[in-house]
Design a protein around this nucleic acid. Sequence first.
DNA 1: ATCCATTCCCGGACCATAGTCCGTTTCATC
DNA 2: GATGAAACGGACTATGGTCCGGGAATGGAT
Lengths: 204, 204
Amino acid sequence: MTTPAEPFALPMADQPRVRSDAARNRDALLCTAARMVAEEGAQAVTMDRLAAEAGVGKGTIFRRFGNRCGVMTAVLDESEAHFQTSVMSGPPPLGPGAPAYERLRAFGVARLAATLQRIDLIEAAGGGRSHAAYTFGVLHVRHLLVELGVEGDLPLLAAALLAPLEVPLLRAQIEVQHLPVARLEAAWCDLADRVVGARDQARG
Amino acid sequence: MTTPAEPFALPMADQPRVRSDAARNRDALLCTAARMVAEEGAQAVTMDRLAAEAGVGKGTIFRRFGNRCGVMTAVLDESEAHFQTSVMSGPPPLGPGAPAYERLRAFGVARLAATLQRIDLIEAAGGGRSHAAYTFGVLHVRHLLVELGVEGDLPLLAAALLAPLEVPLLRAQIEVQHLPVARLEAAWCDLADRVVGARDQARG
DNA sequence: ATCCATTCCCGGACCATAGTCCGTTTCATC
DNA sequence: GATGAAACGGACTATGGTCCGGGAATGGAT
């Protein structure tokens, strides 16, 4: 947890001179929060307990992370960074090297799995991932759509492809309707087919 | 507010003998909540204030509506019922009488507008509409897809079409990215085109 | 019509937890 | 070591949600 693991870390303006106690407390909070999430689930992380177990005051949490969602987002960013690395430089078909169409399908399936794996944490992080993490997904899908020669309003088309993978819908489909994940995967790939316009040529 | 306006009202099992004071309090709460939402916005409706202004105890609210989301959902169901009526028996192209393809586009545009109009209330109602209201949308779209001869996993395809119209995404697109509504409408229609497979024949 | 017993509801005190505020403490620099 | 700026921390507030003793509504018996 020594590395904040910020996805798309901005080139920090100069050196805002982070005070050592601030950095130490931030690390302690992030580390403690991650452990609590791993051991007891996101729902068990209350701000009072987090402050107590990290050995800091409650006000410090809010100064560093703004609110509870901020804490959860920071914890989530760790695994989100892993995901982004897999997409940007991991093995195909998720990473580069595979045809764009295969990468798109792999992305949807991988993102679905990643979301389901941490669904409680993502929800605790405010229903959505951090803005940077979300933007990453849109940009990647948009990039693949360009490679596939899709024309239209690509940013919104990419957002529409990502929308069925958001937490509330997935939760309803899996926990209420009890749909198997394989069916969700298949349906997403079908959707991608239709958006790309590959329903007839690529899949038959 | 004398009519609860339940969408898809179930054929109530016999007469559960709703006590008169219970019904009276329910009406008072619903009426007061609707007024507060209209006058001050959903975010201003705290349970304490609602109880005080409706002249009931706080416990009564939770007995009747379960939680805050339940209250908001009940308020929302009023306008949701209007929407459903427009779809089921209103004038075309939203209502019956127009070609299925026109109805689908009209549905998306109308739903987008309806969501934006009450976006705060919908969010306060738990991010999503009530289960019944959501199911209505899915069933309607699914029905139109059948009429259009679309094949595949229609329930999930319908859900995927509705997903980009959910509140969190719309909020980001409009309040953060400042995209004009017309562009969202156009993009949704384009998405529908692609899903239906009408991109080439019906629109050129 | 009145009374009684039962059932269900009422209501506000109480609890848990997110988030704020500001006097006190610590850090980095001179 | 002095000093100003920044961070700390815990008491405080706001609010969603729970609990349970008291009381009203209802239906049957007299």
